[in-house]
Design a protein around this nucleic acid. Structure first.
Lengths: 123, 123, 123, 123
DNA sequence: GTGGTCTAGACCACC
DNA sequence: GTGGTCTAGACCACT
């Protein structure tokens, strides 16, 4: 379920974060589900537990999971997860748009650019 | 003109790179203009010359400026600068769109989202 | 394995770059192999770590190795390394040929010259 | 006759050297001809006399011109100029061939590569 | 321990 | 004075 690319430049803890977040967003890991324990996942992925721990801590700080000492990490409610995720992406898009507006591109032209990018992507 | 955030996680040389690139894209630094000398900018920003040097070297490697020993660093042709910049933003937008497609959003819905984001922005 | 000429005009970091690239091209350093760590090589060659770092960074930017923080630098796929290397040599030959054409030598005469040079070399 | 590219990365004194050498090789500057004086050329090209001086000194060291104090710099006999020039290029080609042999390419294959490169060039 | 960034200060090649 | 290289030594992020 979780794939780590050893040779990627993105840190491993980040890859774990991304993978888990994606599973939550796709509702594979649903509201209230328990994430695998740090040790468990460390063994499974053959990765240092510290690295897993860092990813979990980040997910907690960003409000995607709730950590209960001695029990484990649990997925928060799906609504808020989706919302936060969409907001983070909207922020990215907004910054891109602002950059294009700054160099004098019109809103209409930007929308057309978006359309053409979307056309090139798979559904 | 150039603002450095000492506490940011993005490296200082990267911030300088971004700032200068933005000035070139906005045509504040125009084709053929001479960038401030390494030492000059180092004094101005109270930053080590090596750090400035690193930013300048990166700009040269990425094809935005031409560096000439004994003379200085000069802004390259505006067309290619704009093109490269647009490409980098398109890449960002594309990644955002891919993320939204992954969570099941339709292309139509994504476009509408773009429209609504754009409406909230100044021209 | 790696020899540095302190008195050469070519920068030390460049010499390291060339040496390592040659080892990769010759498949002494093979696909996936870990390069010596920055500090290790610095000690071995009695050279400042920053200088080694610069060579490694360049190799990464040119697509010959993949760098991973906390793990090391790893040789990329051998095919692309060979291809890039051949291209760089072709460029050199091309410039030589152009120079000879400029002074009025015919293509046929140039080819013969190449043959005679090759005859003088070991297989 | 002499063209300087201000934005090139190759040093100006080197460009002057190359230009003058080319003129001598092409016999535009013939045996015994006097090169323009340092001052003259400096004014013509709007370049610092020191830079010109450096190019001239290099040409003398490499045996292409003879400098006579108080009189000027004079082109040596055409035969030796051509020979030295060809030798310098042969050296370049030889190094390229050696590199290709090192990575296991056969002499035959190298010759074919030369042919194909030559085909792509103008006479 | 690994790579990445930064500082302080020096020297060189070029103009 | 300008960019380019190098050293010495420090600190940070990641594994």
């Amino acid at each position: 379920m979780i794939e780590i690319n050893e040779n990627s430049t993105t840190p491993i803890y980040q890859q774990i974060y991304d993978n888990l977040l994606k599973l939550m967003v796709l509702d594979v890991l649903s509201e209230g589900d328990k994430l695998p324990s740090v040790r468990e996942l460390a063994l499974l992925l053959k990765i240092n537990p510290n690295t897993i721990q860092k990813a979990y801590k980040q997910l907690e700080q960003d409000g995607y999971v709730a950590s209960a000492v001695g029990k484990g990490n649990f997925v928060k409610d799906h609504q808020t997860i989706i919302k936060k995720y969409q907001q983070s992406i909207e922020m990215i898009l907004e910054n891109g748009f602002i950059a294009l507006l700054h160099i004098g591109e019109s809103k209409g032209s930007i929308l057309k650019r978006c359309e053409s990018i979307l056309e090139g992507l798979d559904d």
